[in-house]
């Protein structure tokens, strides 16, 4: 169970992550919005980052520049990912 409550958007992104990355034995509630998605936290790897990039494009129409330094920030946590989706919706 995540320590911080998820917003509806975070919950929907958590569902997308679990389904896209075929995570076993992990429920949407298990993903803490503020915990790292990569490395120490959820334990995702570089292939997952590419897979998530594709899923964001497919589900939210977001195209990320593969060379951008900002990607590290966007992918740091569920909360940051939700902030990216919100920001791109607004533009």
């Amino acid at each position: 169970m995540a320590e911080t409550a998820q917003t509806p958007l975070e919950r929907s992104l958590a569902e997308m992550i679990i389904e896209t990355l075929e995570l076993e034995d992990i429920a949407t509630d298990d993903i803490d919005p503020e915990a790292p998605l990569f490395g120490e936290g959820l334990g995702l790897d570089s292939i997952d980052a590419l897979e998530l990039g594709l899923a964001l494009q497919k589900h939210h129409g977001i195209r990320l520049d593969s060379d951008s330094e900002d990607n590290r920030t966007h992918f740091a946590s569920l909360r940051n990912l939700a902030a990216l989706v919100e920001a791109r919706r607004a533009t």
Partner: peptide, 10 residues
């Protein structure tokens, strides 16, 4: 015309 899954490609 869809993007190829990197995990499946790998």
């Amino acid at each position: 015309g869809d993007g190829v899954s990197p995990a499946r490609f790998s």
